[in-house]
Amino acid sequence: MPRTLIKSIATIAASLTLAYAVAPAAAATTAHPAFKVDVSGKGAPIILIPGLASAGEVWNGTVAHYCGAKNQCHVLTVAGFAGVPAVAGPLLPAVEQQISDYISANKLDHPVVIGHSLGGFIGMKLAADHPDQVGRLVIVDTLPALAAVQMPSITAAQMKEMAAGMRARMEAQDVEAYRAGQQKTLASMISKQEDIDRALGWGKLSDRPTVINAMTEMMSDDMRQDISRIKAPTLVLGSWIAYKDYGTKPMFEQMYKAQYQQLAGVKVELADNARHFIMYDDPTWMYDRIDNFLK
């Protein structure tokens, strides 16, 4: 893979940091402090997990498409993001375990789990660590090992070192630089200005230490071998068009498939007209792929 493409993808991965009915009693914040839940519809359960610094509202169109008489949607917003109070301690393990507890407490029968970006990574971990709970898994534009994009043979120690360096650079930014970084990053991830503005609003309401910690946790982790434990049929939807100056679609497809090669039966598809927020840029394409996957 050309060095320019590798550097671009690594920069994109690091820059991700800047980016209904009443819920049942078991969904109360006091029971699951690592996230809040909004529930709508009836029928087969779907859990939707947004990405870094995003609100559950990012899935509004998806909820409208899927939830009603046949499906019940459980839309999460993670603690510390978009105005939801932050929690102490490592965030990703807490969210993963509390989603598992939520599934058990609400007797959700093998829910479909759909996650975007950081939410896709959480869904991946949930399906690997609790393989008998997840019915089907949809991962929207994330990878099992972001740090390995730059160096596929990276060691665990090198991964942690890279993540620590990223944390230090982010923590050193002043408020103005941080906000400018958010604007630049989201403009590369979303096509329409109104959608960029919406995501910027969520970012302003997000707890900065939580955002930095969550991204550092993800950048430090390598799920490439762990995904072999996933039993759920899995669909991975990726994007590449925003980075076409650095490589071709087949090159990006190769990268995605290489990272997911330990997940038996995984289906990988890349959108031609959507940036990172596929649910905003090309929802019709996304719904068509998920519709066919869920048949």
Rank of each mutant, 00 (worst) to 15 (best):
P50Y: 06
G80N: 12
C67W: 08
I49M: 02
V63D: 06
I49N: 05
L48M: 13
Q72D: 11
V63F: 08
I49Q: 03
A79I: 08
C67K: 03
C73W: 06
A55I: 00
Y66S: 08
C73Q: 14
L52P: 09
L76Y: 10
A69I: 07
N60K: 15
K70P: 03
G68M: 02
G61L: 12
L52A: 09
Q72R: 15
G51H: 02
V78L: 08
G68N: 07
A79K: 04
G51A: 07
P50M: 07
W59M: 05
A55R: 07
K70I: 00
P50K: 05
I49S: 06
Q72G: 15
G51I: 06
Y66G: 14
I46E: 08
A79L: 05
G56E: 08
I47R: 06
G51V: 06
G80W: 01
A64P: 03
A55V: 00
A69K: 15
A53V: 00
A79V: 09
V75D: 11
H74F: 15
A69V: 07
H74V: 00
E57D: 15
P50Q: 05
S54F: 03
A79Q: 09
E57M: 09
E57T: 14
G80L: 09
A53Q: 11
Q72K: 13
I46S: 04
Y66W: 11
W59L: 06
T62K: 06
A64F: 08
T77K: 07
G56K: 03
Q72P: 10
G51D: 07
G80S: 12
A69L: 10
A55M: 02
F81L: 11
G61H: 05
G56M: 08
Q72T: 05
Q72W: 01
I46P: 09
S54G: 13
A69E: 12
G51R: 09
A64T: 05
G51T: 11
S54N: 10
L52Y: 05
Y66L: 15
